[in-house]
């Protein structure tokens, strides 16, 4: 069954899943606790996997199922579980602090979503409507992920922001038809490696400074914040 015959159901479902991703990104913005943030990230990845699988179904592109599977296994299971264990071993499950207030962050986030919608809908008037909406949502997810990275001080939550940003990239890539599997696999692996490197660094930072607050690094470099 091809995507064109699916008509509005295929479009609406894809829309719903992508919108869900943006919603979860918003939830990450105001989430104060690390465990909750990690759970949200797992949900984020799960939604991504579902969305990619739906795309695979509507586009009749079986290789996207592999992408969905990768997203499910690595991003929805392995990385959140590993981060959980890291947080546990570091004993930092209680502390979280945002650098900017929740209200302001939410307002900025809304502005970013509006910006990406306006931009994408305006730049791609001739494109396939599904891809257009998808790209607009994906850009919102990327920008919100960046916002999470900017507003957090804790290294773990910055990692989560980075990972959610990457989810936005995957969403954009699968929305456009005909992205080769190789690219997707290489992106997944690079993220995994980045995750490993960051994990190692977390422990090194922790060993040296007794905290994963990146502010300690700045203090160490002897600079003002």
């Amino acid at each position: 069954m091809s995507g064109l015959e699916m008509g509005s159901l295929g479009f609406d479902t894809a829309h719903l899943l992508a919108g869900g991703l943006v919603l979860v990104s918003f939830m990450m913005l105001y989430q104060h606790r690390l465990y909750a943030l990690l759970n949200l990230y797992a949900l984020h990845a799960l939604l991504l996997a579902t969305s990619v699988a739906w795309q695979a179904f509507t586009q009749a592109a079986p290789h996207l199922y592999v992408t969905a599977l990768i997203a499910l296994i690595f991003k929805a299971l392995i990385i959140p579980v590993a981060l959980h264990r890291i947080v546990e071993r570091l004993g930092i499950h209680r502390d979280i602090e945002t650098a900017v207030g929740v209200g302001a962050t939410m307002l900025v986030g809304m502005g970013l979503v509006a910006l990406s919608l306006v931009l994408m809908l305006r730049v791609t008037p001739g494109a396939d409507p599904l891809a257009r909406e998808d790209l607009a949502f994906a850009l919102s997810v990327v920008l919100l992920g960046l916002l999470v990275m900017v507003t957090r001080r804790n290294a773990v939550s910055q990692v989560v922001g980075f990972m959610s940003l990457e989810n936005g990239l995957v969403l954009a890539a699968t929305g456009a038809k005909g992205m080769p599997l190789v690219v997707e696999i290489s992106v997944a692996f690079s993220v995994l490696i980045a995750f490993i490197v960051i994990g190692v660094f977390l422990f090194r930072i922790r060993e040296r400074f007794d905290t994963v607050d990146v502010g300690a690094l700045d203090d160490f470099r002897g600079e003002r914040r």
């Binding site: 910006l115 990406s116 920008l143 990275m149 990146v214 690094l217 600079e223």
Partner: peptide, 27 residues
């Protein structure tokens, strides 16, 4: 040369948003 990591991230973020804004206003 001597900003914090978060400031650098914020600069990148701001630059990106500014460019997107320019694109949104001009196109």
């Amino acid at each position: 040369q001597f900003l914090t990591i978060r400031r650098y991230l914020s600069l990148v973020f701001l630059a990106l948003v500014t460019l997107l804004l320019v694109l949104a206003l001009w196109s």
